[in-house]
Amino acid sequence: NIFRVLGDFSHLASIFILLHKIQQLKSCSGISFKSQVLYMLVYITRYLDLPWTSSPYNFIFKVLFISSELYIIYLMARAYKPTNDPNLDTFHVEFLLGFAGLLALLFPYKYTILEVFWAFSIWLESVAILPQLFMLQRTGEAEAMTAHYIAALGMYRALYIPNWIYRYFSEPTHKVDTIAVTAGILQTILYSDFFWIYYTKVMRGEKFKLP
């Protein structure tokens, strides 16, 4: 459906915006390396089923997400390392890993390796933006491209919510993926403050600056 497709392309667009920002400004300043590593972990643990992915659409996106994230991490850790300031990127990711790990172990759909890792990836994704938002809060402002990146990334999961509602009514089984839906709503709530400032400032041509 349209929400799902727009969501996935928003996700892809966010990655292109981020790569464009890093390469055009030859800098990864303002980007949280910790959030990027968490996204890498999200992709690895979610796409363990990559070799068995039957849908070409999903397969292509999975390969694109994993490879582009690897490239972003390479750029941040090697090519543009001097522009990456660890003193601003100080969020304690062990809390996020603990949160995702605990929920994955307590409530997986099934106690299999794939299911536990899948649940872990869903919960981890829901909070993986926090180091980035924390960094933004510390610097108080962001380059336009960084703000566009975070907005597109947040829009992706937000668009999954109408997708789930649409699927619930349009598919005869009326299935609800409780883990994905709960985590997706949590993820979107975490972005809400950012979305508000993005809407009131950046979309009106102003700089992204915290009040």
Partner: peptide, 10 residues
């Protein structure tokens, strides 16, 4: 499988 949604999303 009952209870396990098909992982057809990203």
């Amino acid at each position: 499988e009952p209870g396990v949604p098909i992982k057809d999303e990203l």
